[in-house]
Simulated scan of single mutants.
Amino acid sequence: MTDAAHGHEKGKRMGSEQIATVDTADREIVIGRVVKARREVVFEAFTEVRHLSQWWGPDGFTTTTTAFEFRAGGEWVFVMHGPDGTDYREWISFTEIVAPERISLLHGEFRGDPEAFESVVTFAAEGAATRVEMRTVFPTKELRDEAAEKFHAIEGGEQTLGNLAAYVAEVVRKGEAG
Rank of each mutant, 00 (worst) to 15 (best):
K36S: 14
E96R: 13
R111H: 15
F43C: 10
E44V: 03
D113L: 06
F110H: 13
A177W: 00
A5F: 09
L52A: 09
F46A: 14
G178E: 08
F110A: 13
E126K: 15
G108S: 04
E48F: 11
V132I: 01
H8I: 07
T160M: 06
S104D: 10
S93I: 06
G7T: 00
R144D: 05
T86Q: 12
P114K: 00
G74T: 00
M14G: 14
M1S: 14
I92W: 03
E126R: 15
E142C: 05
V42K: 05
P58I: 00
D26I: 02
Q18C: 13
T66C: 04
A20S: 14
T47A: 10
G7N: 03
F138A: 09
G156T: 00
G73L: 00
T21V: 10
A147M: 03
E146R: 13
K36V: 07
G157R: 00
V42Y: 03
E28C: 06
T2P: 04
I29E: 07
G85K: 01
F78R: 06
A125F: 03
R71K: 09
G127H: 04
G60F: 00
T160Y: 03
H152M: 13
E118K: 11
M14S: 15
A25H: 09
I19M: 14
G73D: 01
G11R: 03
E96A: 15
G157M: 03
E9H: 13
A129L: 03
E176N: 11
E69N: 13
I19G: 14
P114C: 05
F138T: 05
T65F: 10
V41D: 05
H152K: 14
I31V: 07
T47R: 02
D87S: 08
F61V: 05
T140Q: 01
T63A: 13
E9N: 12
E133M: 07
H152D: 12
V30C: 10
I31Q: 08
E115F: 10
R102K: 12
E101H: 12
R89L: 15
V132F: 02
K12G: 15
V121R: 05
R13D: 15
K174S: 12
D3M: 07
R111I: 11
V171T: 02
D59L: 12
G178F: 03
E126C: 13
I97P: 05
D59W: 08
Q54T: 07
R50F: 14
K12V: 15
F70A: 12
E146N: 12
P58F: 03
K10C: 09
G73W: 00
F123H: 07
H8L: 08
H8V: 06
G85R: 00
I103T: 02
V41A: 10
E126D: 14
G15I: 00
T62I: 02
V22Q: 12
T62E: 06
G11F: 01
H152F: 12
G57I: 00
